[in-house]
Design a binder for these strands. Structure first.
Lengths: 175, 175
DNA sequence: TGTACATCAGTGAACGCGCGTTCACTGATGTAC
DNA sequence: TGTACATCAGTGAACGCGCGTTCACTGATGTAC
């Protein structure tokens, strides 16, 4: 069950991550931004690590939903991969804290494992597409492709809108 | 001019980064590992940030040398790109702290800018190759390719030796 | 050769600081009778 | 309707801790005379 203060803390965390990255995301900063007392943080989260994990979870769950929605009913293959990629990139343009979640997160031991699992999930989906496309090393290619698309998301962030050069740059690797 | 204690501190830093990542790379840990007094650290480095930058610089300079050596006299194109890639992956297998430098480093504000520049350097080289190969978006493709190869380096670290599946997985994107 | 001084890497105790975390307490809301 | 009690999100001062950094000092080495 969602709780307003719980969500307010996550919202504040995401806003701060968007602006300053994960490394400055202290409990102090979060409670200040959410305008609650420090103790309130621990009413809703066991510790800082649990908060970071929840933040990442929320981010990932949303993207995953968007992608699965987009590729629903499509058979594995190049088209599904491209549509999933577009959904992912569009989704990133509409989310806060993308850079923090995709990059800074790797250096945070607290959520490094979560990130590994997230990438594995997306890789597993993409692997089916590479397999259907007849590639020789679908597992490896999928994992490499996923990080490429994550980088593409970062590149698009710089202008804040879909970037034809970036997207065609990604798809060129599939030909 | 190299100084033994200066190098000992960097060596210790690299060893620690290899084992535990950048986030636990405190001045305390470094001086303990190098078996010098805490004050000695500040004889050789202005502050922790300067140390991290020096660590990254050393890592990058070595890899860059190896790559430039390997592709010397080759004209831009697919072959040069592949040979440079192999040199990079082989180089990573022989360096310490690869994972720390390629991944954790993004979350460390201190060296994030340095990482940006390193990737830009490698991207510029690779862009000439994509250009020569006649790709439509050489700049974007190069940047995407660079992060893909960095991920491939991490994948190879898991087994500690060249991985045919990984390397062919990378090259498959060039066909 | 011996003495005085300069240099400078190295030392480690001490410092202030911000962090994550705790906990006794408050106060609003709901429930029992 | 009024009173007593339970619940629980919220509070914020206080805590210990490890961090990065400082600085007066040491001691070995080199130089001058």
């Amino acid at each position: 069950m969602p709780h307003p203060t719980h969500d307010a803390l996550l919202d504040a965390g995401l806003r701060l991550a968007e602006q300053h990255g994960l490394s400055t995301l202290s409990v102090n900063a979060v409670v200040a931004a959410a305008e609650v007392a420090k103790g309130t943080f621990y009413v809703h989260f066991q510790d800082r690590t649990a908060f970071l994990v929840a933040l990442h979870q929320r981010f990932h769950d949303h993207l995953k939903t968007v992608i699965l929605e987009a590729i629903r009913d499509l058979p594995p293959g190049r088209q599904r991969l491209q549509i999933g990629t577009i959904a992912y990139l569009d989704g990133c343009l509409h989310e806060l804290g993308v850079k923090a979640m995709l990059f800074d997160s790797r250096g945070e031991p607290a959520i490094a494992e979560q990130v590994r699992r997230r990438n594995a999930e997306f890789s597993a989906i993409a692997a089916a597409d590479f397999e259907a496309m007849g590639w020789d090393h679908p597992t490896q290619s999928a994992r490499l492709y996923i990080v490429m698309v994550a980088e593409a998301a970062i590149m698009e962030l710089e202008s804040g809108q879909p970037d034809r050069g970036v997207r065609n740059g990604v798809f060129a690797f599939l030909d």
